[in-house]
């Protein structure tokens, strides 16, 4: 058969790599959602977004250490506490950053790019000083270590299922928040026309701060999920930021659906190609395909059918 694999082997490979791709998809999606909301509303390209993810990952790490040392009886449940803490910590630092720096740089995209890049370097050094330059890994509780055996060649890891489920609920939550809540209505108004939103009485400064905090908080949750598939180091965020930008550019910033579809196709293509080719070849092929599609559709995958 193909490349010496039998048909049932190929099916197993396909299923397992797809699932590995799903975990990657979860991280990409959570990262891209935060980035897309912040970029869509404020036009801010947050180069430090990857560091917010790592902030969430370190929060999860600290949480696992604290639980294993002082409250080992509850260790099995630490991950869920860590997710909430990662959201709160990354979100709070994000709001602080918006208040202290970003709000002075609106409508100056180049300056924000440089400033947030500087922030990312500062955060990396902070991580290095506090946690050391070496990678740290979190310990998983026993019940999250195993895998579901679908048949003798196909195995689905339990922690992967949890990450995918978590992502599903967070995406659903953001979707509901943006489209159904009063806050979401104001966010969308500011996204479309900042000065007009102010002129109908929306407190744009406060909405900006909350939105930036939400974007960073979701990146923190991505970081908590990230601890399941990789080890945390001060610079690990940088490897993800480029892919995240790719997802946002490919999906278009106007719709959540575009972001989801784009994160899905990119992560799946990466994961399945990586098995057959080398990692860098997979990256090259995905990049070329995305560039090709963006040349035909500069507005991204999905865009709204509306006059502007």
């Amino acid at each position: 058969m193909l490349w010496g694999y039998s048909f049932s082997d190929l099916t197993s490979i396909f299923v397992m790599q797809s699932f590995a791709g799903l975990i990657l998809f979860s991280v990409f999606l959570l990262m891209a959602l935060g980035l897309a909301i912040v970029f869509g509303q404020m036009g801010v390209i947050n180069m430090a977004h990857g560091e917010f993810m790592i902030l969430g990952a370190y929060t999860t790490y600290v949480c696992s250490q604290v639980f294993s040392r002082w409250i080992p009886t509850l260790f099995g449940a630490y991950f869920f506490i860590a997710v909430i803490l990662a959201f709160i910590v990354a979100g709070a630092v994000g709001m602080l950053l918006e208040w202290g720096l970003i709000r002075f740089l609106y409508r100056r995209p180049l300056d924000t790019l440089l400033a947030t890049w500087g922030v990312s370097l500062m955060l990396q050094q902070l991580f290095r000083s506090v946690f050391g330059a070496r990678e740290v890994g979190v310990q998983l509780p026993d019940w999250m270590m195993g895998s579901f055996n679908l048949n003798e060649t196909t195995q689905i890891p339990v922690n992967g299922v949890i990450v995918v489920g978590l992502t599903f609920f967070i995406t659903l939550g953001i979707y509901a928040l943006l489209l159904k809540s009063r806050w979401g209505c104001q966010v969308r108004a500011v996204m479309q026309n900042r000065s007009m939103a102010g002129a109908v009485g929306i407190n744009t400064e406060w909405i900006d701060r909350l939105t930036f905090g939400l974007g960073c908080g979701v990146a923190g949750v991505a970081g908590a999920a990230f601890t399941m598939i990789g080890s945390t180091s001060p610079t690990a965020g940088q490897q993800y930021i480029v892919d995240t930008f790719l997802v946002v550019a490919f999906g278009g910033t106007q719709s959540l659906g575009g972001t989801i579809a784009s994160a899905f196709s990119i992560s799946q293509a990466r994961s399945i190609l990586e098995f057959f080719l080398s990692g860098s070849m997979a990256q090259v092929i995905v990049l070329l395909t995305v560039i090709g599609i963006l040349m035909l559709r500069p507005q991204g995958l999905f865009s709204m059918k509306v006059r502007r």
């Binding site: 209505c185 002129a199 109908v200 709204m304």
Partner: peptide, 28 residues
């Protein structure tokens, strides 16, 4: 004052070109 506080104080504005939020529904 920033725009939104002027609105709170009692001003309202219909700009040239109308500037409605085009991707939002009429009700929104």
């Amino acid at each position: 004052l920033p725009s939104w506080q002027r609105v709170k104080a009692g001003l309202a504005y219909v700009p040239q070109g109308r500037m409605i939020f085009s991707a939002m529904t009429v009700t929104e």
